[in-house]
Design a protein around this nucleic acid. Structure first.
Lengths: 246, 246
DNA sequence: CGGCAAGTTGAACCGCCTCAATGACGGTGG
DNA sequence: CCACCGTCATTGAGGCGGTTCAACTTGCCG
């Protein structure tokens, strides 16, 4: 019933047309919507939990910790994302998810999900599809880190976040609010924050994009896509549905 | 009915106990088992297909091509793996899958999978779990490329392949047959084949592991795990089931 | 005002890449 | 049977991108 569900519904709709009944079922799937402070763990690496969440508001990120203290951010999560599906299906989760900002989430139990699968297979399919898309994002992320220069990789990440936020109405071609610190973004890109800082300057000074004070703003989105060698087939094709006429 | 299904069944069993009925259903899920030559595309990047396969014999790999011709191998596939689940669920697949060696596969249709989900939810759950594990491998791979040195990363990959092969009985602590070329492995690790060659030497000369003539052999698996800072929580916990008492 | 986290800049180092050449092997056709 | 070829593996020398270490600044909060 709370309208904070909007992002999730909006996102699912982009993948799969939902009917009214589906939305009603969606509301029975989740429970205990609540606010979580920033920098709080939702899911802990290697601790069996079996909890999943729908993120309604705020940002989160999943990361893995190495023994030497290094951290690799695997993915960022924005409103509408379904977190921890893996944690429900596997006995042990291999990564942690923490909030980046204050966040509003709803918890999803294994029972709730299973019930949804039984009663509304179409809906279940939509959920699976979003999970697939998020996995595709991880793979794209891997390509970034493995085969693109720091500059292309950074440009690519800024654009990807833009598309994902646009899908839920939180970004415009001018830019978007981005609460990530340079250190966190660097841990996602496989760079040091020092080098990322220099890379960001080399995007800012030629007039491509600016990341400052919690905002990403695009001066030349087309040029930025060139730099990123962006091929958004895995994301762009979505987000062209009726909900995103803007 | 062909016993080439063994690897898939064996792998599913490791995640979820199967009963006889499940195995019978599994056999109705797939169709047209056949041999595929080496270096042949099973699934083509950006070409809508909606086909998926169970790999019974041989190796395959999924990769993404960049506009500049660079290639990033996202994952290797060994017997027992389920290929292309994403391709069934999403309208467009964002990566290609090719055979590395000659391979034997069975095709799985969306209908076949959907039927399985309806008739045998337990089985469907097992399939989803293996898909999750493979996604976890991609994430681990991302950590490799993003935050580990070339040497640790290479060691890590050799061990990961070992564990995945062991799960289907194709590896022993002494080593395993590995038909990958150095160039292909380098494309997975985000290295040049030249540098990978030097890295392999720095694993061979201290007496850790050898990769030569299509075989990986471990001289000092424990030491190798040290080098890799290996934390196989996402893989090791599995493979300790009854089927893998060896 | 003091303290901490995050951002910014500089200088020096090194891991990995690039370019280049050679060796080892199997296949193919003369 | 050997000359020719393509693919893969191996080794060398030199250069660049990104790291490391070390300031210093800025902004926020107590």
């Amino acid at each position: 019933m709370p309208h904070v569900h909007d992002c999730f519904i909006r996102k699912l709709s982009a993948f799969h047309p939902l009917i009214g009944q589906d939305i009603a079922r969606l509301r029975t799937m989740v429970s205990s919507t609540r606010a979580i402070p920033a920098h709080q763990e939702l899911i802990h690496q290697a601790r069996p939990g079996g909890r999943a969440f729908v993120l309604h508001k705020g940002w989160a990120c999943s990361y893995k910790l190495l023994r030497d203290g290094e951290r690799q951010v695997v993915d960022f999560h924005v409103p509408g994302d379904f977190l921890g599906l893996r944690d429900l299906l596997l006995p042990v989760c291999d990564r942690s998810i923490v909030t980046v900002t204050e966040a509003i989430v709803s918890e999803v139990s294994l029972q709730g999900l299973a019930r949804t699968f039984q009663q509304a297979p179409r809906l279940a399919l939509a959920v699976l599809r979003t999970a697939c898309i998020e996995e595709a994002a991880v793979a794209e992320h891997l390509v970034d880190v493995g085969r693109r220069s720091a500059r292309a990789r950074t440009a690519h990440m800024l654009i990807e976040l833009y598309l994902r936020l646009r899908l839920v109405g939180l970004a415009s071609p001018a830019g978007y609010a981005c609460p990530l610190s340079q250190g966190l973004l660097a841990d996602a890109l496989g760079l040091t924050s020092i080098h990322l800082n220099r890379v960001l300057r080399r995007l800012r000074e030629p007039g491509l994009a600016t990341f400052r004070n919690g905002f990403v703003s695009f001066q030349d989105l087309h040029g930025l896509k060139e730099v990123a060698a962006f091929d958004g087939s895995y994301l762009e094709q979505i987000g062209t549905g009726p909900l995103l006429a803007a």
